[in-house]
Design a protein around this nucleic acid. Sequence first.
DNA 1: CTCCGAT
Length: 633
Amino acid sequence: MSWDFTGGRGGAGGGRARLPSYVPPHLRNAPVANPYNAAYGYSPYSAVYNAPGYGQYGGGGYVLGGQQDFAPRGRGRRGRGGQRRNEYESSSSPSFADAIAEKFDELEVLGEEEAAGGGGGGINFEAYDDIPVKATGSEVPPPVERFDEIDLGEGLMQNIRRCKYSKPTPVQKHAIPIAVAGRDLMACAQTGSGKTAAFCFPIISTILKNGLNSGPGGTRTVAQPSALILSPTRELSCQIHEEAKKFAFKTGVRIVVAYGGASIQQQLYNLEKGVDILVATPGRLADMIDRGRVSLKMIKHLALDEADRMLDMGFEPQIRKIVQQMGMPPPGQRQTMLFSATFPDEIQRLASDFLKDYIFLSVGRVGSSTGLISQKIELVQDMDKRSHIMKLLHGQKANGKRDLTLVFTETKKGADALEYYLSMSGLPAIAIHGDKVQMERERALRSFKAGVTPILVATDVASRGLDIPNVSHVINFDLPKDIDDYVHRIGRTGRAGKSGLATAFFSDQNMSLAKPLVELMKESNQEVPPWLNEYAKNSSNIYSGGGRYRRYGGGGGGGSRHGGYDDYRNDYSGGGYGGYGGASYGGYDSGSYYGDNGYGGYAAPPAWSGLGGGGGGGYELGTEAVVASGWDM
DNA sequence: CTCCGAT
């Protein structure tokens, strides 16, 4: 029984006494309210410590680099587990289909340059061939080379053709078989690499096979989606929704989006018409669950996009509540898929609470080895930033309208101030940040995409996941504190196989970033300014603090480690986790390469860390150089 | 004093 919305407290939940009871809207002002912020204080590590041993892992795993040929023994041994051949029909209500049909036509026109799906025109597939891929975990299903190697269902296959996705992108080749097999997945891959389709295809396919939700039931409907996709920003939820609708076109699978800042009435109305897949931001979803309008008890698939963001300090408690305390079936009874471009160990550890016997997949960024994004770091003090950006922008003013420049600032205020300054100086700029109402946010994004205001000044609200074609230049007016945020930001350019430029203003305030920045740049074959190298050397010990989730092993020269994150279950180099590691890994790596070493405080030589994919039975192809070349750049 | 996410 899931969460009891109507009944008395206690009782029904059986052992779930801690669940907040439903409070009707008219009583919400009582001090009782907001069960979300307090009351469920959570100690992030407790659950991890108590986790059962990972005895089941260590069976499989592979590392691919360079060519796509696959180790024969891996393929033979595992076969094609998990593929079902059930017949099914896609039913669709005509009115719904018609409504979507219109939308589809629109999207088809707009979507011609979309990077996300992969196969579309203009994508440089050559660049896909030397992408490093690594999968670890037990019994990893082998990748496919073509969509039709997997029985995704006729309706979905048609849509894949409609979208002109001729061939899966690397993340799709690997993630789709894993997901279709019903396995849990933690995937490290940048948006723009086809991530959305990678989790949408298996979800839609499985829903079609298992039967659609019966539409609106009685008069009072509680929406019971069978899949939930969570994302950290409203705009990203919209983007996922738009894309998912294309994939579900005329299949009868209903997809609804829910996010804050927009009328909840319309969203509830959409839910009442029936929903199979709900795409949502956390706050609005919790609100709807609170109101008793959405129930998670039928969830079979859970996907977290930009998962590292969703699990960082600000978000993690909310996510944990939604996933663990609001009636969703536990791991093992649902499929959970986490996607992000960056996956620090700490986040992996938190995330493992949500997963069962999962596969860790790490896929390089398209063009990572060719350095599609050229990074320039300039030493500019805060007081000189404005005049400096003026020089830069005037220098590129001659560019055509479709060349867009995305400028990141640290604060919302800073974004507004810079927008004002640029506008006053005759440059067509517009700002986007979380203090603007949703309409303004959307207007800014549209205006930018259309080239009406080809300069967008943004906070980190725009740093992740958004797929904006033709961003040729990303300027870090203020550098972020965390190197991962930098990675996400510059990833807004260089998409769809196009080249991009990322310029950063490095000031005295950014010393703590010097070292990780230099490491990142070296791994992506960028030229590091000598002064920055000096800062990095001098600051390595002084400024060891900094990012929210710094990676450990800082001394190790990190060669193969940064950019592409490794499965933390395989990482024995983190001396910092001495006390923790030993117990909970338990039988995890019987037969591992490092087998007999106690890991408490054991430090592997730098050259080892990051390789050795997957405990026992892991195997690797390709050269170290490729593996080390920096995923997601 | 970040940022984001509900009313």
